[in-house]
Simulated scan of single mutants.
Amino acid sequence: MTKVLALVGSLRADSVNRKLIEAVQAQAPEGVTIEIAQGLGEIPFYNEDIDGDAAPAAAQALRDQVAAADRLLFVVPEYNGSTPAVVANAIDWASRPFGAGSIKDKPTAVVGTAVGQYGGQWAHQDTRKSAGVAGAKIVEDIELSHAYAWGTDPSQDAETVAKFADAVAKLAAAN
Score class of each variant (00 low, 15 high):
residue 5 L to N: 07
residue 6 A to M: 00
residue 7 L to H: 01
residue 10 S to R: 10
residue 10 S to Q: 02
residue 12 R to C: 01
residue 12 R to L: 11
residue 14 D to P: 05
residue 14 D to V: 08
residue 15 S to N: 12
residue 20 L to K: 02
residue 22 E to Y: 06
residue 23 A to F: 05
residue 26 A to R: 13
residue 27 Q to M: 09
residue 28 A to I: 09
residue 29 P to L: 09
residue 31 G to R: 02
residue 31 G to N: 03
residue 32 V to E: 11
residue 34 I to P: 04
residue 35 E to R: 03
residue 39 G to D: 04
residue 40 L to K: 13
residue 41 G to T: 05
residue 42 E to P: 06
residue 48 E to P: 02
residue 49 D to K: 09
residue 52 G to K: 09
residue 53 D to S: 15
residue 53 D to P: 03
residue 55 A to Y: 03
residue 56 P to M: 06
residue 58 A to E: 15
residue 58 A to D: 14
residue 58 A to W: 07
residue 64 D to Y: 08
residue 64 D to M: 01
residue 69 A to I: 00
residue 69 A to Y: 00
residue 73 L to V: 04
residue 75 V to D: 04
residue 76 V to A: 06
residue 77 P to F: 12
residue 79 Y to S: 13
residue 80 N to I: 11
residue 80 N to K: 06
residue 81 G to P: 13
residue 81 G to S: 04
residue 82 S to F: 08
residue 83 T to F: 09
residue 83 T to E: 12
residue 84 P to E: 14
residue 88 A to F: 12
residue 88 A to I: 10
residue 91 I to C: 05
residue 92 D to F: 06
residue 92 D to V: 02
residue 93 W to I: 04
residue 94 A to Y: 00
residue 97 P to W: 00
residue 97 P to V: 05
residue 98 F to R: 13
residue 98 F to I: 10
residue 100 A to F: 11
residue 100 A to I: 12
residue 102 S to M: 06
residue 103 I to M: 06
residue 103 I to Q: 00
residue 105 D to F: 11
residue 106 K to E: 01
residue 112 G to T: 10
residue 112 G to L: 05
residue 113 T to E: 12
residue 113 T to A: 15
residue 116 G to L: 10
residue 116 G to P: 01
residue 117 Q to A: 14
residue 118 Y to M: 13
residue 119 G to F: 00
residue 119 G to V: 06
residue 120 G to N: 10
residue 121 Q to Y: 15
residue 122 W to A: 14
residue 122 W to Y: 12
residue 123 A to E: 07
residue 124 H to C: 10
residue 124 H to N: 15
residue 125 Q to V: 11
residue 130 S to M: 15
residue 130 S to K: 13
residue 132 G to T: 02
residue 134 A to H: 05
residue 135 G to H: 05
residue 135 G to F: 03
residue 135 G to V: 12
residue 136 A to N: 03
residue 137 K to R: 15
residue 139 V to Q: 02
residue 140 E to Y: 15
residue 141 D to F: 09
residue 143 E to Y: 05
residue 143 E to K: 14
residue 144 L to V: 11
residue 145 S to F: 14
residue 146 H to L: 15
residue 148 Y to F: 14
residue 148 Y to L: 15
residue 150 W to A: 15
residue 152 T to C: 08
residue 153 D to N: 13
residue 154 P to W: 11
residue 155 S to W: 07
residue 155 S to T: 00
residue 156 Q to N: 14
residue 157 D to R: 04
residue 157 D to H: 13
residue 159 E to Y: 08
residue 160 T to R: 02
residue 161 V to Q: 04
residue 163 K to D: 06
residue 164 F to L: 08
residue 164 F to Q: 02
residue 165 A to I: 01
residue 165 A to Q: 02
residue 166 D to G: 07
residue 167 A to V: 10
residue 167 A to Y: 06
residue 169 A to T: 08
residue 169 A to E: 04
residue 171 L to C: 12
residue 173 A to C: 11
residue 173 A to V: 05
residue 174 A to H: 08
residue 175 N to I: 06
